[in-house]
Design a protein around this nucleic acid. Sequence first.
DNA 1: TGCATAATTGAGTATGCACTCGGTAATAGA
DNA 2: TCTATTACCGAGTGCATACTCAATTATGCA
Lengths: 191, 191
Amino acid sequence: MARPKSEDKRNAILDAATRLFAERGLTAAPTSEISKQAGVAEGTLFTYFKTKDDLINALYREIKLELADTMMSDFPRKKNIRAKLRHVWDRYVNWGIANSRQRKVLAQLTVSEVLTKVSRDAGSAPFVEFQIMIRDAIEQRVFRNDVPVELISKSLSALVEATIDLTVSNRSKAKQYRDSGFQMFWAGITK
Amino acid sequence: MARPKSEDKRNAILDAATRLFAERGLTAAPTSEISKQAGVAEGTLFTYFKTKDDLINALYREIKLELADTMMSDFPRKKNIRAKLRHVWDRYVNWGIANSRQRKVLAQLTVSEVLTKVSRDAGSAPFVEFQIMIRDAIEQRVFRNDVPVELISKSLSALVEATIDLTVSNRSKAKQYRDSGFQMFWAGITK
DNA sequence: TGCATAATTGAGTATGCACTCGGTAATAGA
DNA sequence: TCTATTACCGAGTGCATACTCAATTATGCA
């Protein structure tokens, strides 16, 4: 390998893309602008990502991985289900508030047509541990028995998103939203 | 007015746009293709909508209005809160399942950068009656007192969306999802 | 130190697309 | 029936932009 690619440049490109996608949207952000903001020539962008769609798919996986990492770090494996869920809940909410650009981009990416199935699968892979926890809880009959498994994880993220939206538009109520959001979630799934 | 615009043509354009946006995404659907599928010349599209962004904004308002109509028609004004919410819930879920294209487009439009604030406001206007109902319920202390008003309507739509997603990927469980989704919502907000 | 290999550059290219415009056809009103 | 007005048409235009490529530079390895 004569001259290695630089991890820094790759990250710079991904960062610039995040910024521009959040501000202008996926298609209104040209590769020329992305590379300029990343401090590299436009041609260089294409040695790191074969096409723009490639870049988009890579960015999706990157953000999902980052989210999963923050959610699962310091995971309280020894504590009860409620504490585990609360941990995940808080981490997710905080991440969303602190990373509004990535969250905005993620929202665009999720509904976009350029995401491949492979990327979608890769994006949900880091969340397996979380899924397993839910299944365990179901077996231990902690939850109401008429709630389907899939509905629990789906509604967790749905309610977290709603909570973040509200917090962003009214920061002073951050704590209140985070608390009552979770209580609502918990009351919904338990007996 | 020498020659009036045709309501039919306008609708045909909006329909074609819905189909193409759902299949290919907002920007990957060219006006040439939209007009072709609508059975009009490309120039005609621009007499009905000044720009493509105009068309997108109009489509957003159209879909939101349609959704609000189906949710609020036959609204049981005489019944109790639970029945009212259940009515809205069922209508929303059924609409989402039956109109997956419009729902997909709505998801894209909501996160898109071309939507003006005016359009967003116009889009939520038809839902005022629903908002009023929530406020009334709060005053009557039907809900848990630590749940903020805003969280209720937000989480209703969040949970409905989650329910629809699940139903679409497993139609045979439609009834189960719709029921337990609502029960979960109801359990979450009431004491 | 020198060579092979690959990254880097940015001007250039080809394509796709939103929108225009001059000509034509339809319709309301007189 | 005549006229003014406006919808309708679609080939054409100009611009934006994803991607290429030949020349140049940096790096690992012998």
